[in-house]
Amino acid sequence: MSAFWLMHAKEWKESLRSYRLIWLPVVFLILGISQPLTMYYMEDLLQAAGGLPEGAVFSMPEPSAGEVIASVQGQFNQIGVLVLVLAFMGQLSGERKAQTDTMILARPVSWGSFAAAKGVHVMGMAAFCYGLGTGAAVYYTSVLYGTVPFHDAISAAGLFLLWLLLVSSLLLLFQVLFASGTAAGFVTIASALLLSLGSSFFAERLPFLPGRLSSVSSQLWMQQPVEGLLGTVLSGAGLSIGLFFCAVYLFHRRSPA
C-alpha cells in the first residue's frame, strides 16, 4: 500500500513537471466562466460582430440558472473530457517509450499499484478540474442569472463526477490493453460516446444504463424530474469500479513474478 501512495505522489509530481497541473484546471475554469458570460452578452456580441439585418427581431428566452450550468456541463462533456483523455492517454505508453517503467518495475513495486496509481491520479485530476470549473460556472451564473438549490447542485455535480470517473477507468483499461496511447485515447472517447448513445436509445426500456449519467446530471441541474436515479448511480459506480480493478488486474498479470 505504501508503494501505491509513493507511485501516486510520483504521478502528481509528473503532472506538475509537464505543466498539466496548471493548464488543465485553467482550461476548465475558462470553459466554466466563458459560457455564462457569452450567453449573457449574446445580444451585444451579435451586434459587435456585424449585427443583425435591418428589421430582424432578436429575442431569446432568458435561460434559467440551471439551464446555463447545464450548457456549461455540455462543454465539459465535450471539450473537457476530450482534453482530459488527450492529456492523459500517454501515461503508460509514455513511460514505456522512455523506458522508465522498466526502471521502476525492476524495484519491489507491485505492477498493480503502478497501474492503480495512474488511474487514481487521472480521477483526482478530473475531480479537481471539474470542481474548479463548475465552482466558477456556479459563481458566474449566480451573479448573472440566479442560483440553483444547493441540494440539486451537489447531486448533479456528483453524478457528472461519477461519469468522469467512469471515463477515467475506461482510459486506464484501454491504456493497459493497447500499446499505443493514441489508440487508447481514441477507443476511450469512442466507447464513452457509444455508452451515452446506447443509453439514450434504450432510455425507455433500460433506464439504469451508466451512459445516462451525464444527461441525468444535466436534467438535475435544470431541476427536471429524473426516474431510475438509483439504478443509474449503482450501475455507473459498479461499472467504473469493475473496469478499474479489471485494468489493474490485467496489468498485474503481466508482471514476471
Partner: peptide
C-alpha cells in the same frame, strides 16, 4: 478573471 486566466494559460 477570464482575461487573467487566458494570460496564465
Amino acid at each position: 478573471p477570464l482575461l487573467l486566466l487566458d494570460f496564465v494559460l
